[in-house]
């Protein structure tokens, strides 16, 4: 068992370091340590399931060891900024004042194709429109276009727009959610009136009814109400 724990710790550290060395482009939206835990846990848990001759403890102990590692490292990262830089890396500026920082691109092993792809996903087709772009530690790109490339806001156009409330579902598939009614500051008698105004007698006939507390509502009747 001690061997299982030590091997798990060694594997954990080896994979965290490997992921860190490989760089940000290999990551999805997980931090390196999180990715390692995700990759290892699924595999470790599968072994005792596949091989009935392996005691369950051979799967449980490594999973618990990883859990401890993850909690301890994430806790230490919160406390020590340097450790965070060491394990998660630092965001890198890959476009500064409209100029692509080639040194940073090379350092992060990031290609122009990948940069263009990430920008397209943000509806930016022209790299020249980007003033700043930052490669985040989780591998995503944050892009900030030049002010003249940004869409106009109602404030810039001098248009007054009323702020909508936050819609919450009140009836979901025929079930009244009392907690959300309370959030809206309403009660069942108010709900009964709103349904009656739409010609509905029973909440069970409603598929979805949501309200935002400032008068906006969404209503849809069930297509096949239960008999």
């Amino acid at each position: 068992m001690a061997i299982v724990i030590i091997r798990t710790l060694i594997l954990y550290l080896a994979i965290v370091v490997s992921m860190r060395v490989m760089g940000k482009r290999q990551l999805g939206e997980l931090a390196p340590a999180e990715l390692v835990v995700a990759v290892l846990m699924s595999d470790l848990a599968a072994h005792p399931l596949q091989d009935l001759g392996t005691p369950l403890i051979y799967g449980l102990v490594p999973v618990l060891t990883l859990l401890c590692c993850e909690i301890l490292i994430s806790g230490a990262i919160l406390k020590f900024a340097r450790l965070r830089t060491l394990i998660c890396g630092q965001p890198g500026m890959i476009i500064k004042n409209g100029r692509i920082i080639q040194r940073e691109m090379r350092k992060s092993r990031y290609t122009l194709d990948e940069l263009a792809e990430r920008l397209r996903k943000k509806d930016i087709t022209d790299i020249g429109a980007v003033r700043y772009a930052i490669l985040e530690t989780d591998g995503t790109v944050s892009a900030f276009p030049y002010p003249e490339e940004l869409p106009l806001t109602p404030r810039q156009m001098g248009i007054d727009v009323s702020a909508p409330g936050f819609p919450v579902p009140v009836i979901c598939d025929g079930r009244v959610i009392d907690k959300n009614l309370k959030t809206l500051g309403r009660d069942r008698s108010w709900l009964g009136k709103r349904l009656a105004a739409r010609g509905v007698k029973d909440a069970r006939d409603v598929f979805l009814f949501s309200a935002d507390g400032v008068g906006n509502e969404f209503f849809q009747r069930k297509e096949f109400p239960p008999k």
Binding site: M1, A2, V4, I5, V61, L64, T65, L67, C68, C69, I71, L72, G75, A76
Partner: peptide, 20 residues
């Protein structure tokens, strides 16, 4: 949480030593 994790890790090692 961190304290719990540290205690759990120590307990796992202790259990492993007892097992040996």
């Amino acid at each position: 949480k961190e304290l719990f994790a540290a205690i759990l890790l120590a307990a796992l090692f202790f259990g492993a030593l007892v097992n040996i």
